[in-house]
Amino acid sequence: MIPFNKPFLVGKETLYIEAAVKSGKISGNGEFTVKCHEFFETHYSFKKALLTTSCTDALEMAAMLMDIKTGDEIIVPSYTFVSSALAFTRQGAKIVFADSREDHPGINENTIEGLITSKTKAIVVVHYAGVACDMDIIMDIANRYNIYVVEDAAQAIDSYYKGKALGSIGHFGAFSFHETKNIISGEGGLLTINDNRFLDRAEIIWEKGTNRSAFFKGEVDKYGWVDTGSSFLPSELIAAFLYAQLEHLMEIQDKRKLLWNTYANTLKELQEQNHLKLPYVPSFATNNAHMFYVITKNIEERDTLISYLKTNGVHAVFHYLSLHKSPYHINNKSPIQYLQNSDNYTDCLIRLPLFYDLEVNEVKCISNVIIDFFK
């Protein structure tokens, strides 16, 4: 069975973890945390980068920094992971769901403005599969209505919009280093802060509501509880593992892009024959090869193809369930929306295996199984 995903070691992960243990400081914000922060800020021009224990934590930090309160409205695409909405409902916000684009699972930028009210506080955009939303449209809307933009870039490490790194354009960005992502640390995340107004407060919220970071920088002679916050920073063991992966970022990306392109080349004939659709990458976006997916004509065909792949030794999976139809949303007596594109991706999208240790000949084998299915 070719698995859907397989975590990998590509560099000095275990050596750096051992070094962190021997340093005598493994509780967080040590040598490897600093190295990771410096890497992200240098390579991607984030004004501030703060490691977190998950992308969910990064989004929750963003919600705290924006002072999201009961009654505020947050625009979120329905076709996304629950954290994109959950981080803001925990602060009391009302989620207003947006539909996806017809040509891509990302948010339909042209529907956003029609969802804005006097209560709208922020737009959360999800760069699905590491492919950018049209950030010029989104930032123009945000600037005209004086609302915040949070880039949920969980899948978008090392991906760009018109030459700008994703996560560096909105007021905030959030990344994931879960074991299914391009760069991994088991669990782990990153908050990026690109607005000067939030730089200092972000460290306070990150450090349990204390000014501990300022104390260690020598900016204050003692530290205490000064704001809200939580224990968002990860241990040095997570940071050490992550830094070893970052040292091999280009190697990882090159391999994933090779696999992605192999899928695209071997399956393009099926798209030309109108059997299925392949991923679409707009001209303004780059492809970081986070995932390769296909879109079938209906849910019955999707389920049958997944079963056929499994019978032939391939573990493929469908992806998100539209959040506007989730039990939580319905149980809160929220109005049911009709979001055609989001529901179509829920019913018809299949994710194929894509991980560092996968080989080109295995990708060709998977593709041939799909070709045989349609024959």
Rank of each mutant, 00 (worst) to 15 (best):
S84D: 08
K277V: 00
I95K: 10
K310I: 11
F318R: 11
K35N: 00
W206I: 00
K69T: 12
P234E: 06
L323A: 10
D303Q: 14
F318V: 09
G313T: 05
P335G: 07
T42C: 15
F40I: 11
S231K: 08
H104M: 12
E60H: 03
N265Q: 13
R144P: 02
K375H: 09
E179V: 03
T111I: 14
W260Q: 14
D221I: 01
I112H: 08
E73M: 04
N332I: 02
Y145S: 15
L305Y: 06
P279F: 04
V317D: 07
I336V: 04
K255T: 14
D200R: 06
F374R: 07
E300F: 08
Y356V: 13
I371V: 13
G313A: 07
T311H: 08
Y263G: 02
L50Y: 02
K162C: 11
L339C: 05
R256T: 11
A20R: 02
Y345E: 01
A122Q: 12
V82R: 04
W260N: 03
A153W: 01
L86W: 04
R302V: 07
Y16N: 10
Y16L: 11
L259D: 01
L86K: 12
I137Q: 08
H275D: 06
C36G: 05
L352A: 08
A49E: 15
N143M: 07
K35R: 14
G71E: 03
S213D: 00
F198S: 02
Y328A: 15
R212S: 04
I75P: 06
K310D: 10
K268G: 05
I17V: 15
A58R: 07
I370C: 13
G24Q: 12
V125Q: 08
T56N: 15
L50N: 01
E247D: 15
V131M: 10
D195M: 14
S185G: 05
